[in-house]
Simulated assay, not measured.
Amino acid sequence: MKIITVKRKTKYEKRYSTKMGELTTKVTYIKKHLFGLPVKTIHKYRETYYGEVKDCNECALFV
């Protein structure tokens, strides 16, 4: 059994951008796990409708 693993998970989220407004996009989280429990989010990014990969810092989470 590995002690530290890195896992990637994708889910749909509603995001808000000033240029595009509200959009629903796939957001991928890369997390570090210790004994199967999530410890830290290393990186999160989203894929645009055109296939580009962008960082999630430029879009706010829509609530």
Rank of each mutant, 00 (worst) to 15 (best):
K14Q: 09
K14P: 00
K14G: 00
R15T: 02
R15F: 00
R15H: 03
R15E: 04
Y16F: 10
Y16V: 15
Y16A: 09
S17G: 07
S17W: 03
S17K: 02
S17T: 01
S17F: 05
S17R: 01
T18Q: 12
K19G: 05
K19R: 14
M20R: 11
M20V: 15
M20N: 08
G21W: 07
G21F: 04
E22G: 03
L23S: 12
L23V: 14
L23A: 07
T25M: 14
K26G: 05
K26A: 11
V27T: 04
V27F: 01
V27C: 09
T28W: 03
T28P: 00
T28E: 00
T28D: 03
Y29A: 12
Y29N: 14
Y29T: 14
Y29F: 13
I30P: 00
I30Q: 00
I30M: 05
K31M: 11
K31Q: 12
H33A: 05
H33Y: 15
H33L: 15
L34D: 08
F35K: 06
F35R: 07
F35E: 09
G36K: 08
G36D: 13
G36S: 06
G36Y: 07
L37I: 13
L37C: 06
L37H: 07
L37S: 10
P38Q: 07
P38G: 05
P38T: 12
V39G: 01
V39F: 11
V39W: 11
V39Q: 06
V39T: 14
K40T: 05
T41V: 13
T41I: 15
I42R: 00
I42Y: 05
I42V: 09
I42C: 04
H43D: 13
H43V: 15
H43Q: 15
K44W: 00
K44D: 09
Y45F: 09
Y45D: 01
R46I: 13
R46C: 04
R46F: 15
E47V: 14
E47R: 05
E47L: 12
E47M: 12
E47A: 13
E47Q: 13
T48M: 13
Y49V: 03
Y49I: 09
Y49T: 07
Y49F: 14
Y50F: 11
Y50A: 10
G51R: 05
E52Q: 08
V53N: 03
V53Y: 06
K54W: 07
K54E: 07
K54H: 04
K54G: 01
K54A: 04
D55E: 06
D55P: 00
D55A: 04
D55I: 00
D55N: 10
D55K: 02
